[in-house]
Simulated assay, not measured.
Amino acid sequence: MERYVDGFVLAVPKEKLDAYRDMASEAGELWIDHGALEYFEGVGDDMEPDMGGMAVRTFPELADTDEDDAVVFSFIVFESREHRDEVNAKVMDDPAMDPDAFDEEMPFDSERMAYGGFRSIVGHER
C-alpha cells in the first residue's frame, strides 16, 4: 500500500526552540498513540548546501526566516490518505488538543508555516 505523508516547514524563533521541541515531543506521542506510523521533527543544520551551482530555493527562504529563526522540517507518515484522515480526526478529538489545555502560546508563527499532504510516488526502505 502506498504511504501518505503530512509535511511541514516552519520558522521557529531560536529562543523558543526548546519550547517547540517539548510541544513537538508531546504531539509526536499523540499522533503515534492514535495510529501514525512515524513522526519526525528536525531542525535546520545545513541550510545553504552546495548544489554544484544549481539554483535552488532554500528552506530559510521558503520559511521567511532571519538570523533569529531556526527552520523546522517535520513529517508524519500514515498507511494511506484515508488512514491519515482517521488518525487526524482522532487527534483533533483528543482532549489534549483542547486549546484551553495549552499552558503557553504557540512557539512559532503559523502564518509562516507551509503544510501539505503527499501521496507517495517512490519509496525505498532498508
Rank of each mutant, 00 (worst) to 15 (best):
P13D: 09
V56H: 14
D22K: 12
W31V: 03
K16F: 07
P95G: 06
Y115D: 10
Y39C: 09
A24N: 03
D69F: 00
G28E: 00
G123A: 13
R112P: 03
L17E: 07
L37H: 11
G123L: 12
I121W: 15
E111H: 06
G7S: 14
V77L: 14
E29A: 07
G28K: 00
R112C: 05
D6G: 08
P95A: 06
D85R: 12
P13C: 07
M106A: 12
M113G: 08
V9P: 02
V9Q: 03
G7K: 06
G53N: 02
P13N: 09
D109F: 04
M106R: 10
V122W: 15
L30N: 03
D33C: 04
T65Q: 04
A101D: 12
D66L: 04
V77I: 11
M51I: 09
R126G: 14
A11W: 07
E104T: 13
G42W: 00
A114N: 09
R21T: 14
V77P: 02
D68I: 00
G117S: 02
A36P: 01
A89T: 05
V12A: 02
D98L: 01
F102P: 08
D98I: 05
V12F: 05
K14D: 15
F108A: 08
E26N: 10
M92S: 13
M51N: 14
S25Y: 13
G52K: 03
G44N: 03
A19L: 09
V9G: 06
E26K: 05
A101F: 05
R112S: 10
F8I: 10
D93C: 04
E38M: 06
M51C: 12
V87P: 00
R126P: 14
G42L: 01
L30W: 01
N88Q: 11
T65V: 05
S120L: 11
E67T: 06
A114W: 06
M54V: 11
E41T: 12
D93H: 05
G53E: 02
G42P: 00
H124S: 13
K16I: 06
H83Y: 04
V56R: 15
P60G: 04
D64M: 14
G116L: 04
A27Q: 13
E48L: 08
